[in-house]
Amino acid sequence: MSADSFLTPAQRDDLCAIAGVMIPASAEFAVPGADDPAIQADMLATLGRDAGAVREALDALARCAGQPFAGLDLARREAAAGEWRARGGAAVETLTRVVLQCYYRDDRVVRSLGLEPRAPYPQGHVLEDGDWSLLDPVRARPPMWRPT
C-alpha cells in the first residue's frame, strides 16, 4: 500500500494548507514553508503509525473551517487554525509534531540552521574539551557526603 493512500486528496490538501499556516516560507531566512512539495511528500511517505491521529486532526480542522480548510482564504485559514489549535488534544499534537519533524529534517532547512544535513552516524561530531580549571574551587571543598 502506498504510504500517501492513508489520506484522501481533500485531507492531503488540508494537511498542506495547515502546514503552510504553521510554517510559511521565508525570504529572509531563505527557507521553504512546510507546505513545500518535497516536505509534504516526506510527510505523506512517513505518516506510518501517526496516520490515524493525523486523519482525526484533519477532520477536526475541517469542522473548525466549516468546509475543506484548503478552500479558505488566508485570513480565514488563520482564524480556523487558531481555533483548532486552541482546542488542542492528542491528535492535534501529533499532526503538529509530524509537520515539525519533517520540516526540520529537510536539507534546505537544516542547512539554514547552520547544521549539516546528514545522519549523526557514522561521522559524529566534535565536542570541545572545555576549561578544566573551572573545577578548581570545587576540588578545594571538603567531602560533602555523609559518612555512616
Binding site: T46, Q101, C102, R105, P117, R118, A119, P120, Y121, P122
Partner: peptide
C-alpha cells in the same frame, strides 16, 4: 538504530 538515519529524531 535511529542515529544511522535522517529520521533519527522522529
Amino acid at each position: 538504530y535511529p542515529s544511522t538515519g535522517r529520521d533519527w529524531e522522529a
